[in-house]
Design a protein around this nucleic acid. Structure first.
Lengths: 254, 254
DNA sequence: ATCTATTTGTACGTATGTATT
DNA sequence: AAATACATACGTACAAATAGA
């Protein structure tokens, strides 16, 4: 019984689907129906060629499509082939950022969301972190305890302080919340790498930010959810001012 | 001068990049460097083959990769070829949902975010909508003014009431905020289509929801931002209870 | 460490489909 | 309506990678 080539639901590219996409959609439906799990193997190229009655080239184009979407990985050699793959977070993030390449975001847009989401995150996390997790936050904090001496230092510290938020977001119980925060932090990190956004340094605000994070860790350890929320809220307000003062535009990176 | 094949930054698949991905990355960098805009044409297959010194098959696989990511579209015929394409919102949404296929979300996770984001959205929108936009919301509202008579009716109304939020999110000034809300609404819509989530109907809560939306439109028209925020917040709370009462799980759709 | 079998990866030539002029 | 320019698809041959003996 050959799999019905039913385009089904989404991910459909425009217009008349060409064969590679028909096959891709068919395979996706198949994954859903069979409840295939990451690691499960897809049929061989040869088998797929026969199943769908298509040439090697077409099947291979299909595999590249699924691979680009992160749904499979392929390995050569004996025991090789195409395997179901859980879409990685970096890939998902990267694919999403492609969308915003053409639909440009401002730093302001990002902060409007960060100031809603990050306080919620830390309120959820308060009292629920293990000591190693808290220690990891503290060790990150040490990377920028001392004032930066050079511009390069400044840049590294800026990125490290974003890293702090990445660590927090990794711990989110809510995957969607975590993903979105990480996505935004990555956009800001790219921005920082791209532009020299870390200068001119405003030492006063910077120290204030450091203290926010320090106090936040204490509040998290003590399980003071509402305090954590408040601190993060202030922190976001401050960071937003720091970024906007430098009239930052988002980097365009693919 | 042949384009340097520099893997550069992100979107990198795992391990040793195979040729199609190297070319894809090279083309992406090229797009960024040249500042290419949607509609701009890429070189012909033949030209690319020569430029990269690769065969037709490899180049075609590359094009499928870029196409799957939504960055190009290809057309046959004279004046055909590959053209830069602005990643469409539905595609971006769909690619992102692949990530959550393996990283499953609960309805609760989504509502934790909706509760934060949607009130913010309507507060931004208050007093800024044109009369046609408000009319569009009102006409959507009419679709479920009358109590549903059949189960099928119920289902349609449920989806229409989600549509209300989609319309609002389209109007967001903040693209990121708009995207995320639309993404969540789509996840919930899929869920509704997949499961019979609209039953058992709770008429009391349902009417309450209708009134929320009705009052919201008035507040938006009058420019009462904080009222709009409050109404939406209540609406989200109610909707969350409605959904969770039915112990909904997310649909798994690719 | 080497060989061998297996399976994907790449190349290339040709034929077909499709849209433009 | 016909010719043209382009992508799409096919088939085969060979290269590269990897697991296992």
């Amino acid at each position: 019984m050959s799999p019905a080539i039913t385009p089904s639901n989404n991910t459909a590219p425009s217009a008349k689907m060409r064969r590679p996409y028909q096959v891709a959609e068919a395979i996706k439906s198949w994954i859903v129906e069979q409840g295939l799990q990451p690691g499960d193997k897809l049929p061989h190229e040869q088998t797929l060629m026969e199943l769908f009655g298509m040439s090697k080239g077409t099947i291979r184009e299909t595999m590249r499509v699924l691979e680009a979407q992160g749904l499979i990985i392929t390995r050569t050699g004996p025991k090789g082939g195409a395997f179901i793959n859980a879409v990685s977070e970096p890939l998902a993030s990267s694919l999403l950022s492609n969308y915003f390449f053409f639909n440009e975001l401002s730093v302001k847009d990002i902060y409007q969301l960060r100031r809603l989401l990050e306080p919620e995150l830390v309120a959820n996390l308060a009292g629920k972190l293990t000591e190693p997790q808290l220690a990891s936050l503290e060790s990150n904090l040490e990377k920028y305890a001392e004032p930066a001496k050079t511009a390069e230092d400044e840049r590294r510290q800026h990125i490290d302080s974003l890293q702090f938020h990445l660590i927090l977001a990794e711990l989110a119980g809510n995957e969607l919340l975590g993903f979105m925060i990480r996505f935004m932090v990555r956009m800001l990190t790219d921005l920082t790498v791209y532009r020299r956004l870390y200068e001119p340094p405003n030492h006063e605000l910077w120290e204030q930010g450091f203290n926010h994070q320090k106090n936040l860790i204490v509040a998290l350890r003590d399980g003071r959810a509402e305090d954590a929320r408040t601190i993060m809220h202030e922190h976001m307000d401050m960071a937003q001012r720091l970024m906007e003062a430098q009239e930052a535009e988002m980097a365009r990176v693919l």
